[in-house]
Design a protein around this nucleic acid. Structure first.
Lengths: 112, 112
DNA sequence: TAAATGTTTCAATTATTATTGAAAAATGGA
DNA sequence: TCCATTTTTCAATAATAATTGAAACATTTA
């Protein structure tokens, strides 16, 4: 993961509304949530929500898919794991300072 | 760790200069670096560096201590671990989705 | 105390980001 | 096709953050 992408990902999460959005998506798991449902759960106005979802999407933190009239958003767990990996790697100048374990969450919904 | 503190910590890291500063401090390990040395390593002008160090310090990501004429800055590994823990916890609605391992780095320099 | 070194503060400018409401697309059903 | 629903776009405003250079402050050595 490149530094630029990391800054983008961190900036995407470093905002009240977007952190709230991301958390409800993380809690929702691989099933995801429709945009309107996110608006209900977080109290963020639709236009503002759309703006923030675009930011999160652009940062690779969430993905979306059309489902009928609804647009379903899901947290992008693989990007989250890459982000955590970046922050933990290079730690203490290469001298391993403790057992580092990277993945903290499932990556994707498994195909049936 | 509270949401507000998490946003502050993420915002502190979500910026080119500050991420660079934090990384050199992480790589330097518990010994830390003097402000001027950080300026040399990152190419950030002193006044700008001071501004960013204050941001990082306020977010709890770095600590400082006077040492003669120098001010030594060190990465705050415990806050970093708390941050990682926050992002990994609450994942997938409480259903444990994979083994979660929190600490990725030593917390502090051990007392002699 | 005076001079040199290292760091921080201040004020001004520039740039970026968040929010709101209204209008416009896109989709599905009658 | 027409209507209702869901989401996104747009433009305007308000708020926040980054950078610069000069000056001020703090610490050590002569």
């Amino acid at each position: 993961m490149e530094t630029k992408a990391v800054v983008t990902a961190l900036a995407a999460l470093a905002q009240d509304s977007r952190l709230a959005i991301f958390r409800v998506l993380v809690q929702a798991g691989p099933t995801g949530l429709a945009a309107g449902r996110i608006s209900e759960l977080t109290g963020i106005a639709p236009s503002s929500l759309s703006f923030h979802l675009k930011e999160l999407s652009h940062a690779g933190m969430v993905s979306s898919q059309q489902a009928g009239r609804f647009v379903i958003y899901t947290a992008n767990f693989s990007t989250m794991n890459a982000l955590l990996g970046f922050l933990t790697e290079n730690c203490c100048g290469g001298n391993p300072c403790s057992p580092v374990c990277s993945p903290a969450c499932v990556t994707e919904k498994e195909p049936t």
